[in-house]
C-alpha cells in the first residue's frame, strides 16, 4: 500500500469515526432516550424519585417509538403513568420488527429483573409464552391480544379499535363529496382489521350509497407501498382516506399533495398536515394504571384488558388545524355516545 492510499484509508476511518461520535453524542440533558436493537439497562427514559428502589418498566416495540402510530401509543402511555408515580424507570427497545430480536430483548429485560416487561406486538406472543414461565417473579404484558396463556405473570391488552373506526367512518362519509372513501391497511389481523371493519361499517351506516375501497398492502412498514396504495385509492375516486399502522405516513403525504382528507388511528397524526381531520388515539395508560396497582399488590398477571370509548382508553382527537363543520362534530359526538350507551353497534 503506497502512502497516498494509506492517507486515504485513514481519512475514511476518521470520517466514519466522526460520524459515530456525532451520532452517539447529543444533548446529555435530553429527556428521552430510546435504544434500538440491543436492550440496555442504562439507556432509556428515566423518572426517578429521590429515594427507594425504582419500579422498572421495559417496553419492546416493533417500530420506532415515535412512529405516530402503534409503538408511539404505548411509549406515550408509559410516559404518562411514569410521570404520575414516583420512582419509575422506563427503558425502550424499539424497532424490533424481527421477532427473534424482540424475544432476545424481552428475555434480557426479564433477566435483569425489570418489574414489568411490555411486549408490544401480537407477533411476540409465541416468544412470550416460552419466556414468561422462566421468570415467575417478573410481570409481563403483551398486546394487542386477549390471551394470557393461563400464566400467572402475564397480562394482555387489546383495543376495541372498531369503535373509534366506526366514528371515523361516520365522519368520513359525511365529509366525502365523491362518495368514494379509501382505506390503506397493513395486514388483515388484530386491531388493524378491527379498525378497518369498524370504519367501513360506520361509513356505510351513515351513507348506504358510499363506496369504501379497502387495500391491505401486506406490510406494516413499507412506506413507499402505502404511498402508492393511497395513489391507487385516489385514482379510483376517493376524496377521503384513512389507514392504520406505522407505514401510513406515506399515505398521509400523498393525501396532503392531493388535498384529500385523512383520518388517523393509534396516535394523534395531526402533525402530519391540515388534511388530517381527526385521530383515534389509544390511551393505554387506562390499562397500565391497573396493571401497576396489581403488581404492587403482588398480582403479576392473569387479566385481559380492553381499551374502548367507554373506559376512556380510546379518545377521538380533532385536528385544530382542520375546520370541521359543526354538524359533523355533533354527528361524531352522537355516535360516540351511542357506542358507549350500546344503542349503536359496530357489528364486531
Amino acid at each position: 500500500m503506497n502512502r497516498h492510499r494509506m492517507r486515504g484509508t485513514w481519512l475514511i476511518l476518521a470520517v466514519v469515526f466522526t460520524l459515530l461520535v456525532a451520532a452517539c453524542g447529543g444533548d446529555d440533558d435530553d429527556a428521552t432516550t430510546t435504544t434500538t436493537g440491543e436492550p440496555s439497562g442504562t439507556a432509556g427514559q428515566t423518572t426517578t424519585a429521590a429515594s427507594g428502589e425504582a419500579f422498572r418498566i421495559a417496553i419492546v416495540a416493533p417500530s420506532a417509538s415515535n412512529d405516530l402510530a402503534f409503538s408511539q401509543s404505548i411509549v406515550d402511555a408509559v410516559n404518562v403513568v411514569s410521570a404520575e408515580r414516583a420512582n419509575v424507570e422506563v427503558d425502550v427497545t424499539d424497532g424490533t420488527f424481527v421477532v427473534e430480536d424482540a424475544a432476545a430483548a424481552i428475555r434480557d429485560y426479564a433477566s435483569q429483573g425489570y418489574d414489568l416487561v411490555i411486549a408490544h406486538g401480537s407477533q411476540y406472543g409465541g416468544s412470550l409464552q416460552e419466556i414468561a414461565p422462566d421468570f415467575p417473579d417478573v410481570s409481563f404484558a403483551w398486546g394487542t391480544a386477549a390471551d394470557t396463556f393461563g400464566l400467572d405473570n402475564v397480562f394482555s391488552y387489546e383495543a376495541a379499535s372498531d369503535e373509534g373506526g366506526y366514528v371515523m367512518g361516520v365522519m368520513a362519509a359525511a365529509l366525502s363529496e365523491s362518495g368514494v372513501i379509501g382505506v390503506v391497511g397493513p395486514v388483515e389481523v388484530g386491531d388493524a382489521k378491527l379498525y378497518v371493519d369498524g370504519f367501513k361499517a360506520g361509513a356505510e351506516a351513515n351513507d348506504s350509497g358510499v363506496t369504501v375501497n379497502v387495500n391491505y398492502t401486506g406490510s406494516f412498514s413499507d412506506v413507499a407501498l402505502a404511498s402508492e396504495a393511497a395513489q391507487a385509492q385516489i385514482s379510483a375516486g376517493a376524496d377521503v382516506l384513512s389507514g392504520t399502522a406505522q407505514m401510513v405516513v406515506g399515505a398521509v403525504s400523498v393525501a396532503n399533495d392531493a388535498g384529500v382528507l385523512w383520518f388517523g388511528t393509534q396516535a394523534n397524526q395531526s402533525s402530519l398536515g391540515g388534511i388530517v381531520v381527526a385521530s383515534q388515539v389509544y390511551k393505554w395508560e387506562v390499562v397500565l394504571r391497573d396493571i401497576l396497582d396489581k403488581i404492587e399488590q403482588g398480582t403479576l398477571g392473569g387479566t385481559v384488558y380492553e381499551i374502548n370509548l367507554d373506559n376512556g382508553g380510546e379518545v377521538i382527537e380533532y385536528n385544530p388545524a382542520f375546520t370541521l363543520p359543526e354538524d359533523v362534530t355533533q354527528l361524531a359526538e352522537q355516535t360516540i355516545a351511542g357506542i358507549i350507551d350500546g344503542s349503536i353497534s359496530t357489528g364486531q
Binding site: 434500538t36 417500530s63 420506532a64 412512529d67 424499539d94 424497532g95 420488527f97 406490510s219 412498514s221 413499507d222 412506506v223 413507499a224 407501498l225 404511498s227 406505522q246 407505514m247 405516513v249 406515506g250 398521509v252 403525504s253 396532503n256 399533495d257
Partner: peptide, 12 residues
C-alpha cells in the same frame, strides 16, 4: 415520499 421513517427502504 416527503417523509422519513425507521427502515424506510424496507429491504429495497
Amino acid at each position: 415520499l416527503g417523509i422519513f421513517q425507521q427502515n424506510l427502504t424496507n429491504a429495497q
